[in-house]
C-alpha cells in the first residue's frame, strides 16, 4: 500500500506542451506513471511523447477517465487551471507551479474543500510511491520502495534526505512534498492522517522549515494520534534571520513567530526526535 497514488492512478498533465510540462511528462512516463492525457487550450489533436492533448480538462477526463491531474501551467493561469480540474471531476490535483497569489489560493482552498477535491501544493515537487507511480518532478532513481513515509515543505532538501535514507537501506512508501507557500492544499496533518492508517508506512520523516505553525500543529497531532509509528523530523532554518523570506513564500519568521526553535521544541515534546543535520536522520530511524 501507499497513500494517495498507486499503479492504477490515471493522470492528466495540464500545461503538457510547455517546456517543463513536456519534459516531466517524459520523465513520469519513463518511471511508469500512467499519463493518459494532457491539456493545453488550442492544441487539441497534438500529442506529447505519445500522450494525446485536449483543449480542456473536461474533455481530457471524459476521454480518458483520469482521476488525477498535475499542473505545470504558468503562475498567472495556474489558479484557473486548478479550478478547471476540480470542475472536470478530478479528485487529486497536484500543482507544481510556484508563485500563485496568496489570495487566489485562499479562495481555491475553500472552493476545493466544499467539493471534496484534494490539492497538493502549489509550489511543490509533487508525490511519489516508489515503484508504482510518480506524479511530480523529483528524480525517481533516488527512491526505492520501502516503509518510510516522507512529508516535506521543500523540494531539493527532500531529495537530500531521501538520498540519505536510500543509501542507508531505508525505502519509501510514499514521499509527498506539500509545498512552501503560506496556504497549501494539503497540510502536514492531512498527510499524517493518511500515513496513520497505511499499513505499509511503519515510520515517518517530517521535513519542516521556518514560518507559520504547521509543524507545531503537526506535533500536537502526532502526540495524540501517532503513538504507534516512529516519527523523525528535520527543521530547516535554524540560522535564518527574522523578517526575511527565505526563498519559499511561506518561509519567514514574522513578528517573533515561526522560529525553528519553537518547532523543534514542539516536536520534541511530542516525542519526535529532531535531527541536527539531514545526514543524522537514518541513525535516528534505527
Amino acid at each position: 500500500m501507499s497513500i494517495l497514488i498507486h499503479q492504477n492512478t490515471r493522470v492528466i498533465v495540464q500545461g503538457i506542451t510547455g517546456r517543463d510540462g513536456s519534459f516531466h511528462t517524459q520523465q513520469m512516463l519513463e518511471y511508469g506513471t500512467s499519463i493518459v492525457g494532457g491539456v493545453t487550450p488550442g492544441k487539441e489533436g497534438e500529442s506529447v511523447h505519445g500522450v494525446p492533448v485536449f483543449n480542456s480538462a473536461k474533455q481530457a477526463v471524459n476521454a480518458t477517465g483520469a482521476d488525477t491531474s498535475i499542473i505545470y501551467v504558468p503562475e498567472r493561469f495556474a489558479s484557473d487551471a486548478i479550478i478547471e480540474a476540480a470542475d472536470a471531476g478530478i479528485s487529486l490535483i497536484v500543482c507544481i507551479t510556484e508563485g500563485l497569489p496568496v489570495n487566489d489560493v485562499m479562495k481555491i482552498k475553500q472552493y476545493l474543500d466544499e467539493k471534496g477535491v484534494r490539492l497538493v501544493g502549489p509550489n511543490c515537487p509533487g508525490l511519489i510511491s516508489p515503484g508504482k507511480s510518480k506524479i511530480g518532478i523529483m528524480p525517481g532513481h533516488i527512491f526505492k520502495p520501502g516503509n518510510v513515509g516522507v512529508i516535506s515543505r521543500s523540494g531539493t532538501l527532500t531529495y537530500e534526505i531521501v538520498y540519505n535514507l536510500t543509501s542507508s537501506g531505508f525505502g519509501t512508501s510514499t514521499c509527498i512534498g506539500i509545498g512552501g507557500d503560506p496556504i497549501i492544499g494539503s497540510s502536514f496533518i492531512d498527510v499524517l492522517h493518511l500515513f496513520k492508517d497505511d499499513p505499509d508506512t511503519e515510520s515517518i520523516v517530517l521535513i519542516g522549515e521556518i514560518g507559520g505553525d504547521a509543524e507545531e500543529k503537526a506535533a500536537e497531532y502526532i502526540s495524540k494520534n501517532l503513538g504507534h509509528k516512529k516519527v523523525i523530523s528535520f527543521i530547516a532554518g535554524r540560522t535564518a534571520p527574522p523578517e526575511k523570506r527565505m526563498g519559499h513564500a511561506g518561509a519567514i519568521i514574522s513578528q517573533g513567530k515561526g522560529t525553528a526553535e519553537s518547532k523543534v521544541e514542539a516536536l520534541e515534546s511530542a516525542g519526535v526526535k529532531v535531527a541536527e543535520k539531514p545526514s543524522d536522520i537514518p541513525a535516528l530511524l534505527r
Binding site: R153, S154, G247
Partner: peptide, 26 residues
C-alpha cells in the same frame, strides 16, 4: 544552493561545523 529548503539546511549545517554563512542563495 539549488532549492530554498536545501539552502536553509546548508546554512544550518555550515553553522553546525563551526562556520558562519555569508548569505542565503537559491
Amino acid at each position: 544552493v539549488n532549492g530554498a529548503g536545501l539552502a536553509m539546511a546548508t546554512m544550518d549545517v555550515v553553522k553546525h561545523w563551526g562556520g558562519q554563512p555569508a548569505n542565503f542563495l537559491d
